[in-house]
Nucleic acid binder design. Structure first.
Lengths: 103, 103
DNA sequence: CGGAATCCTATATGATACTG
DNA sequence: CAGTATCATATAGGATTCCG
């Protein structure tokens, strides 16, 4: 089996791996929302229109795998889970801003 | 019908459109090769291992549509065609370099 | 609430043959 | 040489149901 991390490292083009981290239909939107404050699953589902549980679930897991988001579980009732942006995640934000300005 | 350009403009997240310009398995690699010098189809096909005519063809057309590459046709025999990076394309390079440094 | 499992559709990519 | 056309496969995304 090949892990996500290996895939990223096998790229001939260095930036490819980086773009892959945020590729897909919902990751960038999740990422943007998580920047302002920690986000919760149901909140994302409500805010990101057109999305669905399955796709958000996959996207969140992948963002977590590459350590752009960190999942915080608070074992209370009802279960409370938050996704926080990691330092690595935060470091990408200014570059993404520059990308936006290019368009 | 919806054009590529419209899709890009409809994104909620501004950077999404930018990422989409270079999304896919081969575009970034093509883009990188085209930065050094104008590239030709057969040359790309040889240099980018694992690729194939069909995929490169599609990728090139899309890069052309969003004006990151310009296609130059020299109607001689044999037919000579070059893909050049546009000013818009060149403007993206430094930002991509920064992305690479983040990984 | 926060998902995972399943099933299905859409889009991306690939192999190959053909063309001006 | 520089592709396009066609067909096949692989991956991404979506709808729905189920579970702790």
């Amino acid at each position: 089996m090949t892990t996500k991390k290996e895939l990223v490292e096998n790229e001939t083009c260095p930036a490819q791996g980086l773009l892959k981290l945020l590729s897909g239909k919902w990751k960038l939107e999740i990422f943007r929302l998580a920047f302002d404050a920690p986000v919760r699953f149901s909140s994302l589902l409500r805010q990101i229109e057109g999305s669905n549980k399955q796709s958000l679930s996959v996207a969140l897991r992948e963002l977590e795998e590459v350590e752009l988001l960190e999942k915080i579980v608070i074992t209370a009732k009802p279960l409370h889970i938050e996704y926080h942006m990691t330092p690595k995640g935060k470091s990408m934000v200014p570059v993404l801003k520059q990308l936006e300005n290019l368009l």
